[in-house]
């Protein structure tokens, strides 16, 4: 059987907020190592890779590997029935066709449970090669979200140019052009830091719509890491973490726009 107890059930709500725009349904793969999800959006432009480590759960038991196909809109409905600080237990019998979510209030005087039908999803997994990226940018996730939101007003594409000077985000459209430049800084407040690890300068162009969807994960982590190399997909990574627990990560891969 599978049983996983998450002290902060709100974490799963935030994870759902971070993937529900991109995916209608997805398989959660359970193993001894934890819960993993890998799925592409319908148009095969982006991929979500979620890893929640077994160690991040208060209790974690997975007797045999199983894949739980879930409709994410249904899962959102169920998670809406919980409070952010509820303790969440997810459980399923081997070969079951339902998964159960149990919510316990912090003081223990309210317990609710919801069964959700599982789906048979024929999901293809992609092998993602280990890559040394030419540019790795670490920046505050709120800043990333704001930049992407602001520039999306201009055009359907955003160019990200990374060089020794820093990072420049640009977008052009009917109303004009927007450029936002971030210098590397070493401000005393490390939370505001933008750090660039550069092997060679890279400029790539991406669809604004997907970057905006990725930015929905900003609630999971104060930092975001963008990794780029010429002519390969961008990686946008958010740690899934609180001050006292490292749950894992959510990574988004996004295919670049390429000159015709």
């Amino acid at each position: 059987m599978f049983e996983a107890r998450l002290a902060e059930g709100g974490i799963l709500k935030k994870v759902l907020d971070a993937i529900k725009e991109l995916l209608n349904e997805a398989s959660f793969d359970c193993s001894e190592a934890g819960l993993q999800l890998q799925a592409m959006d319908n148009s095969h432009v982006s991929l979500v890779s979620l890893n929640l480590r077994a160690e991040g759960f208060e209790n974690y038991r997975c007797d045999r590997n199983m894949s739980m196909g879930m409709n994410l809109a249904s899962l959102v409905k169920i998670m809406k029935c919980s409070a952010n600080d509820d303790v969440l237990t997810i459980k399923a019998q081997d070969n079951a066709d339902v998964v159960t979510f149990v919510f316990e209030s912090k003081n223990g005087d309210r317990v609710s449970d919801f069964d959700m039908k599982l789906m048979n999803l024929d999901q293809e997994h992609l092998g993602i090669p280990e890559t040394d990226y030419a540019c790795v940018i670490k920046m505050p996730s709120n800043e990333f979200a704001k930049i992407v939101r602001d520039l999306s007003q201009f055009g359907e594409s955003i160019a990200i140019a990374c060089s020794k000077q820093g990072v420049k985000f640009s977008s052009t459209g009917d109303i004009g052009t927007g450029n936002i430049k971030l210098a590397q800084n070493s401000s005393a407040d490390s939370d505001d830091k933008v750090v660039v690890d550069l092997q060679e300068p890279v400029t790539l162009t991406f669809a604004s719509r997907y970057l905006n969807s990725f930015a929905k994960a900003a609630g999971l982590s104060e930092k975001v890491t963008l990794s780029m190399s010429p002519d390969v997909p961008l990686v946008v990574e958010f740690k899934v973490a609180t001050s006292d627990n490292d749950y894992g990560y959510i990574r988004y891969y996004l295919a670049p726009k390429i000159e015709d």
């Binding site: 997994h125 992609l126 891969y253 295919a255 000159e259």
Partner: peptide, 14 residues
């Protein structure tokens, strides 16, 4: 105009 590429042209199916 830049064209959207597909992830499938970068990553192989497992």
């Amino acid at each position: 105009k830049a064209k959207q590429s597909s992830l499938m042209s970068f990553f192989q199916k497992k």
